[in-house]
Design a protein around this nucleic acid. Structure first.
Lengths: 100, 100
DNA sequence: ACGTTATATCGTAATATTACGATATAACGA
DNA sequence: TCGTTATATCGTAATATTACGATATAACGT
């Protein structure tokens, strides 16, 4: 039988919920491209208040989608769950090329 | 550059939001297995009130994830967007075997 | 036309998410 | 130690989602 139990569904739903926001998708896609990024850079890219960006990042972080590493004053974010790469490929229109 | 624009992110987020609920994931996975299903069957499986199941189905439907076909008194639901298959494979633990 | 079955929609209370300014924390350089 | 920079957290108002009983609709058999 081996049906996914309720817990599996809940866990998967949590992950999807964390990704299910245009700003967070944008952050994640940027991280997949750039591999690593600090908050102020994202903030400029997104053109959103710092606290807003930070809150989205915390949501991604507590879902295990990204992780952090401090480097002096900055916190560098990276992708922590490789599955999101495939999710993004599946869901966002492809790029012709990715620079850098 | 060809960056996905805001609209792409919003569209992808809508899709994820529609899937980001344990009950809806369960419905979708069931449909992937059984190919086709009516509402009362799902209702029994899920053991939830009819209106609750129906509302989840409407959410999946308006996201284009499932589609319907009437057959007499019943409405048969099927998966409309093949991408969800890969999403499910990616997110839910695999089954050893799928019967029928 | 009438009762029955299957499904959808409405109304709504409870809960969750979002955005964002204000404030806190942590690390740096002087 | 102090000021500054980078980031996180708090408080909260606005908005969205959820669950579910009640009610509506649509198709069937008689």
């Amino acid at each position: 039988m081996n049906e996914p139990d309720f817990k599996s569904y809940t866990a998967a739903a949590e992950m999807l919920k964390a990704l299910a926001h245009p700003v967070r998708l944008c952050i994640v896609r940027g991280l997949l491209q750039k591999k690593q990024c600090n908050v102020s850079y994202m903030q400029e890219c997104l053109n959103l208040p710092q606290s807003t960006v930070s809150q989205h990042l915390q949501k991604l972080r507590s879902a295990g989608i990204v992780e952090t590493e401090r480097s002096g004053l900055e916190i560098k974010y990276t992708i922590a769950d490789e599955r999101v790469k495939q999710l993004i490929v599946l869901l966002l229109p492809k790029e012709d090329a990715i620079y850098e």
